[in-house]
Structures are given as structure tokens and as C-alpha cells.
Write a protein that binds this DNA or RNA. Structure first.
Length: 928
RNA sequence: GGGCGCGUAGCUCAGCGGGAGAGCACUACGUUGACAUCGUAGGGGUCGCUGGUUCGAUCCCAGCCGCGCCCACCA
């Protein structure tokens, strides 16, 4: 017996275990080794993460595709795993140490700290994957990977070494985006431009040799002026032409700085003269290179002023008396230093003005601190070269974005791609496989042994060491360990993510999985990581595999709250998917997300919507109960195409239509259309009409019609379970089990397989549309009667007679055949036939014929006349519109034939209907 | 400054060249043995504005008005 109500919480975990126990998620299962492969790699969630609504959407869509293709018989691999998430994870563990009042990271040392992180990972790293299971994700967990596991780490080292040897990875000293909180370099992508209300300061720099004359520069960062090494004006700016080549004297410092002509200066902006601080501004850095300016750093890695022990500062510029006075700046935070510099310049009368100024200020993603451009040595990937192939792959269609417009975004970024800074000054991550010799010579290799061998060989060849000395070092463990120093930095987390589509399949080994599942079929992800991840996977995949990592990139929207605001903890508008799963079931959440996943628009999620789809699940549940109560059991040998009953032929055809619609929508990644089609079919076709029309048969005497109908009800229900399974895996699998036909004395399911691996419905039966004329007529008739009953206030319980007027023989046959049904659904007492309509009757036109409801004493004649007048007006306007069209020569000449024909047909139908309405009006006249 | 997108029923959104749709909300009625997490019926929209293309425009094009997002070293 099917339970009275569906209990998601009870069912979901049990069903999920059953899938896992059956090995249903595993690739290559069930004789599918010969089948077409279908693979998706999961966007690996942070190991520190917990499931948020974005994950829920992302993984629901992947799971829908994966379940759909699995049911279509493909050999499916959904490759799961997690990301080590460098900074995020390091932060979590450091915070934990603090909370437990244990020694901090630096005190415990690198090795101890890293093993602490691993411990944390073992204990807590499984949260997110457990939560994915609750959502129903059918990943092949037997293949779960972690970006820091041994295999993937090996892939990372190999990639690094090969790119280094190909000259595509190099070390460079230049400005980087520096996070002053986490004390690490970050990439351009980890920087957010934030609009800040600040001030624009106009400073007067005296000009050497021109007495009281000065040049005014505008700046938003006064504290960096101590590091100025030039003033730039535009080469064509008449105002300053004479000053180019002269020197300004930098206030407070006394440094002579040249006034140079450079295009960077915009005559429209500020004063047209701009101070140049090559060590603290990306633009100025370039100017510095062009004009061979010295780089003067005045900030340390924590964003504090560093003047005293700063060789960059003191060696090049003899401290002036003024500078000595400003030495109080040393060690000050940059923002405090800013206030003091401004104050001092004001005292000196060198501040022309200060204006309020709104501008974009770069902030570090993670820490939220203002990013400091900082001069350091870092490792870079030459992305430009790699980008060329990636762009070509998208241009040629080897990888396709869906929706298409994201390709523009992709190209736009790729065309302007900058070197990718991949080194991070943190501990948790893939340590860079680079070692330095005694003279700082760099050796890059996959292992320390290889690096050492390479280094010793190099020093021998270059006569730094003799062969004997080298051998001695190699032989002595102590000296070996001391000879090289490993680069302490680790790689950007996205570096290992970029390898995900092939590293998870076993690369660099030539595994069968790599051969079979690469390139993957589709990547499902949000637009926010097109640059971070998609582009980089494209570059790495093409370089190392010589083939794109995925055929299709499906870009989905952002999930927002019901008002359209981005969900964030600080706003307190976060909806927790696990909470929704608890309240409504995973299926309801999944269906909601799918139904709302229209391409190109963000999802505004509301609980009302989830509730609505929970109701849908309930509806399905009850429909299955109805089938069971009425003895509708799957008949394995039943072939729907052989059905004899019109009603059954009709639902078979409707089922095929729905199957086709859902299949085509899923093939085109139109999740909302697929969900909508399934919803309409189940509720508005199967439940509202088919089951209702089947009731009299099921309640009637036993016989072939009843037997067939029972089989068909069960068959259609089974098709529904299949069609709905990708969206609502739990409830459908549960119903699949509980509705299984029983074999005597045998416990358990007699289904051939779990639903998850059942065959996806075909479209067979589409060609037979004959039943529609009959069932459609019944539906129209019932609907029309119901509508009229409400309109003229017939009490719902009242049973009234129906008279079919001047019915053609076919109608008479149909009416006779469907009398029980129609009477039941339209609440009629009797169906009769007559050549003319009875007096005092409500008359409706159904598919060209008049049906009358004699309602002497019940019907309000005036109301009825008004109703018919309204209908007449409607039909008249229809005719008029068609006439107007058909009267235009242009239309007849230029419109396609089928459109013209359609218009004629519409007109004829309207005319016929009009005639019937007129007759009805006349009769009413006579009656009144 | 560049690029992308959005303005359709009270709300959330589909549709996107041939007579305006769904869900929710709303109104009325209804516990007929699957389902009140339900059923039946109903009200509600000059499809942002202005032009253009077309036999025909909510749909294509241009401009404008609102709104959002992404990218960009500008003082």
C-alpha cells in the first residue's frame, strides 16, 4: 500500500543508499562499456564550503542532465571532488587554532601547520559532499578526487615543469596586487573594484630654478608622494610644454624629479599634470619603465610606511631636513600616513585644494582590504599564448557556450588577457616545484631529487663545482638537503582547478578513463567563474591534451532572493537549500530550480514557488495512490500502441508528445521548458483529464476495457515517473518501487531495474492522433458546460439535463459512448438528442454544434441573452479581423499560403459559430 | 570608457514575426471515495516610450527613458 502522504525526509536517505548500493552512479556499469560515453566534471566546491543556493542550482542542473543521459543508455560519468581552496582553508584552520587558544601558524611552523590542515580536512572536509548527496547528486563517488591528493598534485607539478620549460611560466619582478592582510600576491581576478567616496588632493610641487613657480598635481593617494620619481604631462599639452625636461622638487623629501612628457597624462583630468610613483601604481610602473625612472617603495608588505630601513628609499635619496621631520611617518598605516602628509603639506602651503572625489578603488576579494600594488618577485603564466588556442577552439565551435552570448564575454577577456600571477605567499596549497641554488639560480623539476641532479650538473658544467664536489654533495644526505632551497610559495588554487577535467581522469597516466571520458560532454557553471576557471581549463586542456576539455559550456544564472538581491550573509537574505530540503523535500527544491532556470535570466527564488512544486509532488503521489486503489498495476507485456480504447489511445499519444517535448528541451538545455512540459502533462493532462475520464471505466464492471485501462493507467504513470525522474529523483524512485507489480510470495521489487537506470521513454505513438477528435470533443463539451454552469449560477450539486441539438451521427455515437463520463464530469442528469433546442435553455456551441441545457425556471433569460450577445460580439470581431486581413491585396499577395489558408479557416469556423449563436438567440427570443 | 542583459497580468517570470501565456496571489463556488499540499469557474495586460522595416511587430532594426551585471591603470 502506498502511504497516505509522501514523507521526503524518510524516503530520501533510504533511496539514496539504494542507488549507491546498486552502484547506479558508477561509470561503465551495467554493460555500458560499449555505450556512448557522457561525462561531466563537477565544479569542485571548496572543501571548506557548505551547500549554498548556487551549488544547489548548479548541481541540480548537472544531475538532471546526468540522470537524463543515463536513462538514455549512455555510459555516464559525473566526476566529483573538492577543491583545496588555499586561502579560505588556511583561514578556517588558523581561526580554529585561535579559538582553541593553540599556537598560531607561524609558531607551529609550516610542516606542523600543514598536517593540521590535513587533519581538519579529514574530519570536516566531507560536509559539502554529504550535502550534495542530500540534494540527490548522482556523482560517481567511487572516483571522488581532491585537488591536493597525490595524483592531482603530481599533475600540477608536471604541468608546472612543462610550462616552465616551454617558457610559458616564468618569474618576474613587477608590481602585483598585494593583499596586506593575508600578505600574499593575488591575481587580477581576485581584485574587486569598489566605488569609494574619497578626496582628490591638489599638491603644488616647486619647480627647480624657477623661483616661486610650481606645478600642481592631483592625487587620491597623498602618502605615496614620498615615492614619486617624476611628474608627467601630456606631450601635446601647451600649458606645460616649457616645463618638460625641467625638474620639480618633491616636497617633504627634497628629491629632484624630472617633468616628463608621457601619454599617460590626460589634459582633461585633474590639472593635466600627474605625479608618477612607479613602485605604487600600475600605470606609473609602465611610465617608469618608459622613462627609466627609479622605483621607490615607501610601503611594506603590511601597508605601513617604511622609510628608515628601506634601502630603496634612503639609498637613492639623501634625507632632507624636511624628510627627517616626516620620519614620524615610519611604521604608520598608509591611511594614517595619508592624513599626516596632507596636514604637513597644508602647513607648508603646498595644498592648492581638496575636492570630494568618487572613484573606483581595488579591494582584495578575500580580505576586503584595499589592494596595494607591491613590487615583488612572483611566478607568472604567459596566458596570452595559451589564450590563442582557446579562442580558436571557441571560434571554430569545438567548444560551444550556451547561451551563446557568453562567448562574447569570453572573447572580450581572452583578447585582453594579462599574465596570470600564480604564486601565493601562503602555506596551504601546491608548493611551487622550484629550487634555488647557492647563487639563487633557479631549478624547476617535478621532484627535489631531479632538481638537485639538475643543479649539480649545471654547476659542474659551469665550473662552479668540480665533479668530485658534486658527487660528494650528492652522496651526503645532510649536504643534499642543504644545497638547494625550495621556493616557499604555493600556487594559486585555480592553477590546479584548471587541470580538473583531465587530472581527475588520471592524467598524466594514460588511463582508460582519460581516453574514454575526455573531452567531457558539458560543463555546467555560473558566469562568475568563466574567467577564473572555464578559460583556464580551456587553455590547459588544449595545451596538454591537444583537445578541448568540454564540448559545451552551459552557463546558468545566479540565484537571488525573491526581491532580486544577491544573497549574502551580511544582508541576511540567504536561503539555505538544506533548510528548504528539510521543509519541502529535495525534489521540490530541485524542480523549482529547474523550472526557473530559463536561459539568460537570474533566478529570484521564493519559498512560495518551492511550496507550489512540493504540491506538485503531492499531486503525483496521490495520482499513484489512485492508480493503486483502482488496481492499476504495470503489465510488463503491455504495449500502449495496441490499445483499443479511444481514451487509452489518446493518453498514449499525449504521453509521446510530452516525452518528445521534455527530451527536446533537455537536449537544448532548456530546463524550464522541460520542467514546464512535465508539470503540465502530469497535472493538466494525466490527472485532470485522463484519470477523471478513466474513473467510470475503473469503477465499472470487469472486462477488456477495464483491463486495458488499468494497464494503461499504470503504463502512463510509469512513463511519468521516468520523465520526471531527472527532476524529482527521490519521489519517482520511491513510487517506482512501491508500484512495482508483485509476484506471488516474492518480497521486494519486481521491476527490472531501479528507475535511475530504467529506459527513457520513446516517442512512439506520435503518428496516431485519431483519438484527439473524440476525447478533445468530450473535454471541450465538459469544459463548456462547466463554464456555463458557473456563469449562470447553477448550484454545483444540481444535476441538469443536456440536449444535443441536431447532432450528426458521429456526435450521437460519441455522446452515447461517453455519456457516463460527461454526466459525471459536468454533473448532468441525462443526455438527450433533439432536432431543435428546447425552450428556455442555455445554448453553447461545441466544435460546431449546439448543446443545450434546458433550465426552465433556473436560468435567467436576460443573463443568458447577455451571455450570448457577448459571445456574438466576440465572434463578430474575430470575423471582422479575418475579413480585414483577407481583404487586403498585399496580404493575399505576400503572405505565405498556409497563413492565408489558416486565416480562411479561422473565418469559416467563426462564421459557423456565429450562425449557431444567432440560432440560439432566436430560439431564446421565441422562448421569451 | 567598453561589453552584456533586462523592462509582458498585483508578484515572479515564459513566449519572441501571423488572433497575449504559466505559477503564485486574488474573487466566487465546492469536502462527488487519489489529492483542501485539492477541485471547478472567473477577474486582471494599449507586451517601457517613439520612430522604422514588413502584407502583418509584444517579437526584427534604430533612438530614447528606466534598471541590473561584467570588464577597464587613470590623477
Amino acid at each position: 500500500m502506498i502511504e497516505k502522504t509522501y514523507q521526503p525526509a524518510e524516503v530520501e536517505s533510504r533511496i539514496y543508499s539504494a542507488w549507491e548500493a546498486a552502484g547506479a552512479f558508477r561509470c561503465g556499469q551495467g554493460g555500458r562499456r560499449e555505450a556512448e560515453p557522457y561525462s561531466i566534471v563537477i565544479p569542485p566546491p571548496n572543501v571548506t564550503g557548505s551547500l549554498h543556493m548556487g551549488h544547489a542550482l548548479n548541481n541540480t542542473l548537472q544531475d538532471i542532465l546526468v540522470r537524463f543521459e543515463r536513462m538514455r543508455g549512455k555510459d555516464v560519468l559525473w566526476q566529483p571532488g573538492t577543491d583545496h581552496a588555499g586561502i579560505a582553508t588556511q583561514m578556517v584552520v588558523e581561526r580554529q587554532l585561535m579559538e582553541k587558544q593553540l599556537p598560531g601558524r607561524r609558531e607551529m611552523g609550516r610542516e606542523a601547520f600543514i598536517s593540521r590542515v590535513w587533519e581538519w580536512k579529514e574530519q570536516s572536509g566531507g560536509t559539502i559532499t554529504r550535502q550534495l548527496r542530500r540534494l540527490g547528486a548522482s556523482c560517481d563517488w567511487s572516483r571522488e578526487r581532491f585537488t591536493m591528493d597525490e595524483g592531482l598534485s603530481r599533475a600540477v607539478r608536471k604541468v608546472f615543469v612543462e610550462l616552465y620549460r616551454a617558457g610559458l611560466i616564468y618569474k618576474d619582478k613587477r608590481l602585483v596586487n598585494w593583499d596586506v592582510r593575508f600578505l600574499t600576491a593575488i591575481s587580477d581576478l581576485e581584485v574587486q573594484q569598489v566605488e569609494v567616496k574619497g578626496e582628490l588632493y591638489y599638491f603644488k610641487y616647486p619647480i627647480e630654478g624657477l623661483g616661486e613657480a610650481f606645478i600642481t598635481v592631483a592625487t587620491t593617494r597623498p602618502e605615496t608622494m614620498l615615492g614619486d620619481t617624476a611628474v608627467a604631462v601630456h606631450p601635446e599639452d601647451e600649458r606645460y610644454r616649457d616645463l618638460v625636461g625641467k625638474y620639480a622638487i618633491l616636497p617633504l623629501v627634497g628629491r629632484r624629479i624630472p617633468i616628463v612628457a608621457d601619454e599617460i597624462s590626460d589634459p582633461e583630468k585633474g590639472t593635466g599634470a600627474v605625479k608618477i610613483t612607479p613602485a605604487h601604481d600600475f600605470g606609473d610602473f609602465e611610465v617608469g619603465r618608459r622613462h627609466h625612472l627609479p622605483l621607490v617603495s615607501v610601503l611594506d608588505r603590511e601597508g605601513r610606511m617604511i622609510l628608515r630601513e628601506n634601502p630603496d628609499f634612503l639609498d637613492r635619496v639623501p634625507p632632507s631636513a624636511e624628510l627627517e621631520r616626516t620620519l614620524a611617518l615610519h611604521g604608520l598605516d598608509r591611511f594614517e600616513a595619508r592624513r599626516r602628509v596632507v596636514a604637513r603639506l597644508q602647513e607648508l602651503g603646498l595644498v592648492e585644494k581638496i575636492e570630494p572625489h568618487v572613484h573606483m578603488v581595488p579591494h582584495a576579494d578575500r580580505s576586503g582590504e584595499v589592494v596595494e600594488p607591491f613590487l615583488t618577485d612572483q611566478w607568472y603564466v604567459d596566458a596570452k599564448q595559451l589564450a590563442t588556442m582557446a579562442m580558436a577552439a571557441v571560434r571554430s565551435g569545438r567548444t560551444e557556450f550556451v547561451p551563446k552570448q557568453w562567448e562574447a564575454t569570453f572573447f572580450n577577456w581572452m583578447e585582453n588577457i594579462q599574465p596570470w600571477c600564480i604564486s601565493r605567499q601562503i602555506w596551504w596549497g601546491h608548493q611551487i616545484p622550484a629550487w634555488y641554488g647557492p647563487d639563487d639560480k633557479t631549478f624547476v623539476a617535478e621532484t627535489e631529487d631531479e632538481a638537485l641532479a639538475e643543479a649539480l650538473a649545471w654547476y659542474v658544467v659551469h665550473d662552479v663545482l668540480t665533479r668530485e664536489e658534486a658527487d660528494a654533495i650528492a652522496a651526503d644526505p645532510e649536504r643534499r638537503a642543504q644545497f638547494l632551497t625550495r621556493d616557499p610559495d604555493v600556487l594559486d588554487t585555480w592553477f590546479s582547478s584548471a587541470l580538473w577535467p583531465f587530472s581527475t581522469l588520471g592524467w598524466p597516466d594514460e588511463t582508460p578513463e582519460l581516453a574514454r571520458y575526455y573531452p567531457t560532454s558539458v560543463l555546467v557553471t555560473g558566469f562568475d567563474i568563466i574567467f577564473f576557471w572555464v578559460a583556464r581549463m580551456m587553455m590547459m586542456g588544449l595545451h596538454f591534451m591537444k583537445e578541448v576539455p568540454f564540448r559545451t559550456v552551459y552557463i546558468h544564472a545566479l540565484v537571488r532572493d525573491e526581491k532580486g538581491a544577491k544573497m549574502s550573509k551580511s544582508k541576511g537574505n540567504v536561503m539555505d537549500p538544506l533548510d528548504l530540503i528539510d521543509r519541502y523535500g529535495a525534489d521540490a527544491l530541485r524542480f523549482t530550480l529547474a523550472a526557473m532556470a530559463a536561459q539568460g535570466r537570474d533566478i529570484k527564488l521564493s519559498t512560495a514557488r518551492v511550496e507550489g512544486y512540493r504540491n506538485f509532488a503531492t499531486k503525483l503521489w496521490n495520482a499513484a495512490r489512485f492508480a493503486e486503489i483502482n488496481g492499476c498495476v504495470t503489465v510488463p507485456s503491455f504495449a500502449p500502441t495496441t490499445a483499443r480504447e479511444t481514451l487509452n489511445r489518446w493518453i498514449a499519444h499525449e504521453t509521446a508528445l510530452a516525452a518528445r517535448e521534455i527530451t527536446e528541451a533537455l537536449e537544448a538545455f532548456k530546463f524550464n521548458e522541460a520542467a514546464g512540459a512535465a508539470y503540465r502533462f502530469v497535472w493538466n493532462i494525466y490527472c485532470d483529464w485522463y484519470l477523471e475520464l478513466a474513473k467510470p471505466i475503473l469503477a465499472g464492471p470487469d472486462g477488456p476495457a477495464k483491463t486495458e485501462t488499468r494497464a494503461m493507467v499504470a503504463w502512463a504513470r510509469d512513463q511519468i515517473l521516468k520523465l520526471l525522474h531527472p527532476f524529482m529523483p527521490f519521489i519517482t524512485e520511491e513510487l517506482w518501487a512501491v508500484t512495482a507489480p508483485r509476484s506471488a510470495g516474492q518480497p521486494g521489487s519486481t521491476r527490472e531495474s531501479l528507475l535511475i537506470v530504467a529506459r527513457w521513454p520513446s516517442f512512439e505513438g506520435l503518428e496516431d492522433n485519431a483519438a484527439e477528435a473524440e476525447i478533445g470533443w468530450v473535454i471541450d463539451l465538459v469544459s463548456a458546460i462547466r463554464s456555463v454552469r458557473t456563469e449562470i449560477n447553477v448550484p454545483p450539486a444540481a444535476q441538469i439535463p443536456l440536449v444535443l441539438v441536431a447532432a450528426v451521427p458521429e456526435t450521437r455515437t460519441r455522446a452515447a459512448r461517453w455519456a457516463d463520463f460527461i454526466k459525471r464530469l459536468a454533473r448532468l442528469s441525462d443526455i438527450a438528442f433533439a432536432e431543435g433546442a428546447p425552450a428556455q435553455a442555455v445554448q453553447i456551441v461545441v466544435r460546431g454544434e449546439v448543446a443545450a441545457l434546458p433550465l426552465a425556471g433556473v436560468v435567467d433569460l436576460a443573463a443568458e441573452r447577455a451571455r450570448l450577445d457577448k459571445e456574438l460580439a466576440k465572434v463578430d470581431s474575430d470575423i471582422a479581423r479575418a475579413d480585414a486581413k483577407l481583404a487586403r491585396p498585399d496580404f493575399l499577395e505576400r503572405a505565405p499560403e498556409e497563413v492565408i489558408e489558416g486565416e480562411r479557416e479561422k473565418r469559416e469556423a467563426a462564421q459557423a459559430r456565429r450562425a449557431k449563436i444567432l440560432e440560439a438567440l432566436e430560439r431564446l427570443q421565441g422562448a421569451g
